[in-house]
């Protein structure tokens, strides 16, 4: 089923690309615990992407996970543009992590009742792990939102910048109606509503405000990407490209 394939690619690509970005903090985190946190989240996200590519491979006849992750062209990726942006300053990375992982937590909570059993089983597992990602993000949003004048200003400005990009997570999918009809997924509009309900109380405690009249950055789901994706893919696939048939 094309719409289900497309949906799985969408979530997998989001997690693979942000997983790769998170891994760029390895060795560079502002303190040891944070270095470890972003590295661990990178591992979780790449692991999740692998499992989704594996479902595509075994259940739907798509290529092997390694091939799918490393041998597709830029326009074949379905990730939203939010995940492509460079890690930037820590404020941006934290805010992106907060906005993205709340969306993932709500998404996988939803998917625990998906009519696609293998996805529902995986979702039960992933939801439990994502709680820790959300807990980490919330802690820092509150800490820095209520920290010094500078930390508050930086978090607010990162939020203003990242929010329209985060709305791009919810770009309508091709064949979404069909997914809803078959009970695979409740749809992006419902997801966005739950996401908002989930981030608002944290933002309030953190003393941060959502920008008004933000316009969603769409395009990623249809293969339109920022200038940042191509160099990322080049770096990520560098070793694979040397010998695509190598056994690991």
């Amino acid at each position: 089923m094309q719409s289900l394939k497309n949906f799985l690619y969408t979530i997998a690509d989001d997690n693979l690309i942000l997983g790769h970005r998170n891994s760029e903090w390895t060795g560079l985190g502002p303190m040891l615990e944070e270095d470890i946190a972003f590295s661990s989240m990178a591992q979780d996200k790449v692991g999740l992407a692998y499992q989704l590519y594996q479902l595509l491979h075994t259940d739907m006849g798509e290529g092997h996970p390694d091939k799918v992750a490393f041998a597709r062209t830029e326009t074949e990726f379905k990730c939203c543009q939010l995940v492509e942006y460079p890690i930037g300053e820590y404020d941006f990375s934290l805010v992106r992590h907060f906005l993205f992982d709340h969306a993932m937590y709500e998404l996988f909570s939803m998917l625990t009742t998906s009519a696609y059993p293998a996805l529902a089983q995986l979702a039960v597992k992933v939801r439990g792990e994502l709680k820790y990602h959300v807990l980490h993000a919330d802690t820092w949003m509150k800490k820095l939102g209520n920290g010094s004048e500078e930390s508050k200003a930086r978090m607010q400005s990162a939020l203003n910048y990242a929010y329209p990009l985060a709305l791009g997570i919810f770009e309508p999918l091709e064949g979404e109606q069909e997914l809803v009809q078959y009970g695979y997924f409740e749809g992006m509009a419902v997801l966005q509503e739950r996401w908002l309900a989930s981030i608002m109380p944290v933002l309030e405690t953190a003393g941060l405000k959502l920008p008004v009249n933000a316009e969603a950055t769409f395009g990623g789901r249809k293969g339109y990407h920022t200038e940042y994706l191509a160099p990322l893919l080049k770096e990520m696939t560098e070793v694979f490209a040397i010998d695509p048939e190598a056994e690991w």
Binding site: E33, A37, S40, Q43, H136
Partner: peptide, 13 residues
């Protein structure tokens, strides 16, 4: 809780 992430994926500090 110092960090929900630790030396392995299954540990918190």
């Amino acid at each position: 809780l110092l960090s929900p992430f630790g030396p392995t994926l299954c540990r918190a500090m």
